[in-house]
Deep mutational scan, measured.
Amino acid sequence: QVALSRTQVCGILREELFQGDAFHQSDTHIFIIMGASGDLAKKKIYPTIWWLFRDGLLPENTFIVGYARSRLTVADIRKQSEPFFKATPEEKLKLEDFFARNSYVAGQYDDAASYQRLNSHMNALHLGSQANRLFYLALPPTVYEAVTKNIHESCMSQIGWNRIIVEKPFGRDLQSSDRLSNHISSLFREDQIYRIDHYLGKEMVQNLMVLRFANRIFGPIWNRDNIACVILTFKEPFGTEGRGGYFDEFGIIRDVMQNHLLQMLCLVAMEKPASTNSDDVRDEKVKVLKCISEVQANNVVLGQYVGNPDGEGEATKGYLDDPTVPRGSTTATFAAVVLYVENERWDGVPFILRCGKALNERKAEVRLQFHDVAGDIFHQQCKRNELVIRVQPNEAVYTKMMTKKPGMFFNPEESELDLTYGNRYKNVKLPDAYERLILDVFCGSQMHFVRSDELREAWRIFTPLLHQIELEKPKPIPYIYGSRGPTEADELMKRVGFQYEGTYKWVNPHKL
């Protein structure tokens, strides 16, 4: 086992960053958080920038500027975001240094004079007029057009580079997404736009490419001749908990499936790229999406959770019991969808996408189930092999396979070949997804960000279904809070070829 401390991990990262040409360590950078008073800024962006600063992973002359409508001070920003920093008493001095680099400007999102004030403020910072500028839009999409237009007109660096990070949702359907994309691309070049999907920053999602293309053993079996089906799962054990009003506007397909799960599907299904260059990788992902037809209604199961009468606390409440959810809402909190990649490698292999709230566990994984062994000599005792990439929690890679049961006879039983990170790298604290992705933006690497043509294809696949749901308002199937979801989803999976045995229990190697 390799035991690495946080300091050692960050030392390795620093070495990698400083050796590259793309990370300008000594240049002045300004990180501007648009929507600095909001939840995302408070819980994710400010803490992430602090962790990067604490670990010495930001360029040395980096300033952080918050911008929002609320009249706040840096002290206010500190008060609301610091509880999420997880700072230790030993880091007190470092924390003071961090907040000394912070400033805040209040202004409207659609007022040109406010942006001119913001620009004057940035120019007044040390070497601010020639600094590289990175704008993070932690804002609702309704203000994107006004904000990007004003940034472009008043706040661009004339000497350094300018980059803009856009948070999902990128529209509600193909038409609104196209409108937003066309607007942003009329102001910024594609190499300046970073559409963030934080799932692409997760260690195991990034590991998929290495697993596939750096190991000879997987190449020959990664196709329709050997793989019976692919299941991509995202499960949350909690409901909307008072935030249903926002969720109800989008629903589970827009929230998770059309982005996170579809991105994971691309990494499983794509061909080997010409290189690890950002556009070479994204070219292959677009090719996969172009091979997927629009979702067919007979390959869809929609569910909505109801309270568990035997549960406790939140578990007793259904989705419609959330006071922020519109009365009688038919918005799905669970969806199972089957897609097919219609190309030579994957023809006929079902890709089953499942996601839901208020389920029995927290889990995100990719599961490849292989065909049955031909010419069975073990009297149907063999179960199908599976390769599982567990994204969260407890990152893991393992192969479910058959071995001989101890004893006199040739009785096979299920076991696993474990390729888990935790076994080799004991207690290594890896940077989280937002840390990686923000560092990628500083480096100018777009590999783990969504390109406009990729986004367009993703919406093309799901828009007809979303429009049909909005028009017909089908009643989702009720499922109990804390269950596996509607049984109809299991029946759909069985119908397209997935075999669920229920006889195997994964042993978490992190707890051995």
Results as ranks from 00 to 15, higher is better:
333 T>F: 02
390 R>S: 14
285 K>A: 00
280 D>Q: 12
444 G>S: 10
278 S>C: 10
388 V>C: 12
421 Y>Q: 01
449 F>Q: 03
327 R>N: 15
327 R>W: 12
332 A>W: 01
402 M>E: 10
327 R>D: 15
293 S>Y: 10
259 N>I: 04
457 E>P: 01
309 P>W: 11
322 D>N: 05
434 Y>R: 01
434 Y>F: 05
446 Q>K: 00
380 Q>K: 13
344 E>D: 09
307 G>A: 14
478 P>Q: 14
477 I>R: 14
436 R>W: 01
475 K>C: 13
371 H>G: 10
508 N>W: 08
497 G>C: 07
468 Q>V: 14
381 Q>Y: 08
324 T>V: 08
279 D>I: 13
439 L>T: 13
338 V>I: 12
388 V>A: 10
258 Q>I: 04
503 T>C: 14
444 G>C: 06
316 T>P: 11
479 Y>K: 01
484 R>T: 01
303 G>E: 04
323 P>G: 12
435 E>H: 09
458 A>K: 02
314 E>N: 12
445 S>I: 08
438 I>E: 02
353 L>S: 02
417 L>M: 10
268 V>K: 07
498 F>G: 08
280 D>T: 11
379 H>A: 15
351 F>E: 02
418 D>T: 01
347 D>R: 14
257 M>P: 06
418 D>C: 06
409 F>T: 15
410 F>D: 09
402 M>S: 10
502 G>K: 10
272 K>M: 10
451 R>V: 00
305 Y>Q: 01
375 G>S: 15
254 R>G: 02
433 A>I: 03
398 Y>I: 03
305 Y>A: 05
412 P>E: 09
335 A>S: 13
444 G>W: 01
405 K>P: 08
307 G>M: 08
494 K>H: 14
357 K>M: 01
485 G>V: 00
285 K>T: 04
279 D>R: 14
358 A>M: 04
349 V>Y: 02
444 G>Q: 07
465 L>R: 06
410 F>G: 12
356 G>L: 04
335 A>L: 01
333 T>V: 00
353 L>K: 01
284 E>P: 05
377 I>Q: 08
263 Q>H: 06
351 F>Y: 03
331 T>V: 07
277 N>I: 10
383 K>Q: 15
296 Q>C: 14
451 R>Q: 03
354 R>H: 06
490 D>R: 07
356 G>M: 02
358 A>K: 00
401 M>I: 09
434 Y>I: 02
470 E>T: 15
339 L>S: 07
449 F>N: 01
300 V>C: 15
281 V>P: 05
267 L>P: 04
275 S>K: 04
490 D>Y: 08
350 P>N: 00
488 E>D: 14
398 Y>E: 01
486 P>Y: 02
335 A>Y: 03
426 K>I: 08
317 K>T: 15
369 Q>S: 05
439 L>M: 12
292 I>V: 13
322 D>Y: 04
404 K>D: 04
396 A>R: 02
341 V>H: 02
371 H>C: 12
406 P>I: 06
259 N>A: 02
281 V>K: 04
467 H>M: 11
291 C>K: 14
311 G>W: 09
387 L>V: 06
354 R>V: 02
424 R>V: 05
361 E>N: 08
255 D>G: 00
463 T>E: 07
478 P>A: 11
267 L>W: 02
406 P>S: 07
311 G>P: 09
492 L>G: 01
272 K>F: 06
403 T>S: 15
340 Y>T: 13
316 T>M: 14
451 R>M: 02
444 G>F: 01
387 L>F: 09
411 N>W: 06
441 V>Q: 00
317 K>S: 14
350 P>F: 03
494 K>P: 04
326 P>H: 06
398 Y>P: 01
493 M>S: 15
407 G>E: 10
309 P>L: 13
451 R>S: 01
284 E>N: 08
390 R>C: 09
487 T>M: 10
368 L>C: 08
263 Q>A: 00
447 M>H: 02
275 S>M: 05
433 A>F: 04
401 M>E: 01
375 G>Q: 14
260 H>I: 02
329 S>Q: 06
501 E>H: 14
478 P>H: 12
406 P>W: 05
340 Y>N: 15
392 Q>N: 14
492 L>W: 10
503 T>H: 10
393 P>H: 07
412 P>Q: 12
437 L>M: 07
443 C>V: 15
417 L>G: 04
379 H>I: 07
386 E>W: 04
415 S>W: 03
506 W>R: 01
495 R>V: 11
355 C>P: 04
410 F>A: 11
384 R>V: 06
356 G>H: 05
365 E>T: 08
472 E>Q: 15
399 T>I: 11
424 R>W: 00
465 L>V: 12
389 I>Y: 06
304 Q>P: 01
443 C>G: 13
503 T>D: 15
443 C>K: 07
396 A>E: 00
319 Y>R: 01
480 I>R: 15
255 D>T: 01
290 K>L: 05
303 G>C: 02
482 G>H: 08
338 V>E: 13
500 Y>W: 11
345 R>V: 11
269 A>Y: 06
452 S>K: 08
451 R>P: 06
353 L>W: 00
442 F>R: 04
466 L>I: 12
360 N>W: 00
417 L>F: 01
435 E>A: 09
323 P>R: 15
307 G>N: 12
426 K>A: 13
344 E>V: 07
316 T>Y: 13
334 F>T: 02
432 D>F: 09
473 K>F: 11
307 G>D: 10
407 G>S: 00
320 L>H: 13
274 A>K: 13
416 E>R: 00
505 K>V: 15
503 T>E: 12
441 V>N: 00
424 R>K: 15
315 A>R: 11
264 M>N: 01
331 T>F: 03
411 N>Y: 10
387 L>Q: 01
444 G>Y: 01
416 E>Y: 06
480 I>L: 15
432 D>P: 11
467 H>D: 12
463 T>V: 06
326 P>R: 06
304 Q>K: 04
465 L>W: 14
325 V>C: 07
410 F>R: 10
341 V>C: 12
463 T>S: 10
325 V>P: 00
298 N>D: 15
302 L>R: 10
425 Y>S: 06
418 D>V: 00
457 E>A: 09
493 M>D: 06
255 D>Q: 02
437 L>I: 07
369 Q>D: 02
303 G>R: 00
310 D>P: 06
377 I>F: 13
276 T>H: 09
328 G>N: 05
491 E>A: 11
398 Y>F: 05
495 R>P: 03
497 G>Q: 08
482 G>M: 05
412 P>K: 10
311 G>A: 11
299 N>L: 11
302 L>I: 10
409 F>D: 12
290 K>N: 13
437 L>T: 01
386 E>N: 04
428 V>K: 12
319 Y>C: 02
480 I>E: 13
449 F>L: 04
305 Y>V: 07
297 A>Y: 11
382 C>T: 11
367 R>V: 04
273 P>I: 00
272 K>V: 07
432 D>G: 12
414 E>Q: 15
498 F>L: 13
370 F>Q: 00
428 V>C: 14
326 P>G: 06
487 T>K: 14
337 V>P: 01
477 I>P: 10
319 Y>K: 00
478 P>K: 14
375 G>P: 11
442 F>V: 15
374 A>P: 14
256 V>W: 02
305 Y>L: 02
446 Q>V: 07
320 L>N: 08
284 E>H: 08
305 Y>F: 12
392 Q>A: 09
277 N>Q: 14
363 K>G: 05
441 V>E: 02
332 A>K: 00
348 G>S: 10
324 T>W: 08
330 T>H: 14
385 N>P: 04
312 E>G: 10
392 Q>G: 14
368 L>S: 01
315 A>E: 13
453 D>H: 08
278 S>F: 08
347 D>M: 10
260 H>R: 04
349 V>A: 00
283 D>W: 06
415 S>V: 12
282 R>A: 02
333 T>M: 00
266 C>L: 07
330 T>F: 12
454 E>M: 02
421 Y>S: 03
457 E>V: 07
506 W>H: 05
392 Q>S: 10
